[in-house]
Write a protein that binds this DNA or RNA. Structure first.
Lengths: 194, 194
DNA sequence: TGATAGGTTGAGCATGTGCTCAATCAGGAA
DNA sequence: TTCCTGATTGAGCACATGCTCAACCTATCA
């Protein structure tokens, strides 16, 4: 039925956020994209709520686009590390950076992003745990390790995307790979070696 | 002389940014704080330029407040690690997060923050290099190591400040200390140990 | 068919905000 | 004192943007 305009509005907002970022989206953009009157948006939502809900939907959509779908944990980790700084993941990280920033002053956004943050962490922790169970690597505290890897990844991505400080994608990828290898006790040269 | 109103405006803007963040500051706030007419701000600056200049000044001011001033590299590193997640450093990091986010879409801001980013990195790299020279630790590539430490620190601080995902200060501090120890080949338990 | 209810519309309102520009002021030169 | 130049002022403009609300559909029921 065409009558589910509420979902259409939410969906349009999420699409626009994926395309242009949270800050750039206006109520009028959303209603235009949804093919709906301005009034209807305000009938169903308050803007800050809609923005948060749409940002969450947009985040999940980007996560789904990037999440490793390989058959085994070690291959999943490979995919993760390969895609970690690929341009395909840029939209996700841009959105992530913007959302976490907004979350500092916007409770709705904070609430909406909570689930995503935990989801990403759980996903990564599951890979680490399963890989350890299968003997691919050593990882006694998967959740904590996932958090450290995610934090390092997050930091590096910020540098790559903002250029503050300047960091090439390839360099960043090397740093992350070494970090993960060290974290999991995988055979790889330490940080000391060039 | 009272006639240096330009500097007064810039200074007022920087103060307000330190107090309230970049996004919250308005031209009228600045002129009111500087005790100056609205027109004068626009006479001396374009708003986006002033905002970037003031953000840079605010960043440097916060950096100066946090930068380790101990006599030897090993003590400087201690101070750095001790203050890394202390509430005293919160304003710096909040500002840093906001500025780097803005820099993605604001060229003036990007240009202004460049120097700060390099400055922080240089500072840290210098400590690492001097410490290695004095035999406190091992660090063949200080600049790269500084970048990794800064990235990890940045990522962890983001988690602590935004709660996305939730991370306690004490936990974050432990993670960073272990990482630095590992990075510098210092004697300390590895990640595997609880 | 007419009445009712609830979805839907968009011109217009209220507010916020960067910036303009004619008017004003202050200090030095003549 | 008078004039002139450049600093300074702030009411008002132009624009952006979330949201209101009286009016308008449209489907359902009696």
């Amino acid at each position: 039925m065409t009558t589910d305009r509420r979902a259409a509005i939410l969906s349009a907002a999420a699409d626009l956020i994926r395309e242009n970022g949270v800050a750039a989206v206006r109520t009028r953009d959303v209603t235009a994209r949804a093919g709906v009157g301005i009034g209807l948006l305000n009938h169903y939502f308050k803007w800050c709520e809609l923005r948060a809900l749409a940002a969450e939907q947009a985040l999940w959509a980007e996560i789904d686009r990037v999440v490793p779908d390989a058959p085994t944990p070690d291959l999943q980790l490979d995919v993760y590390l390969t895609r970690a700084f690929g341009p395909d993941a840029d939209p996700l990280w841009r959105l992530w950076i913007e959302v976490t920033d907004l979350a500092m002053s916007d409770p709705d956004m904070a609430r909406a992003a909570e689930g995503c943050a935990e989801g990403i962490l759980d996903e990564l922790a599951a890979i680490l745990e399963q890989g350890a169970a299968k003997g691919h690597w050593h990882c006694p505290a998967p959740r904590a390790a996932a958090l450290r890897i995610f934090a390092f990844h997050d930091g590096l991505v910020g540098f790559v995307l903002t250029g503050l400080p300047k960091l090439e994608r390839a360099e960043a990828a090397k740093h992350l790979k070494r970090f993960v290898a060290l974290e999991l006790g995988l055979p790889q040269q330490g940080y000391g070696t060039p």
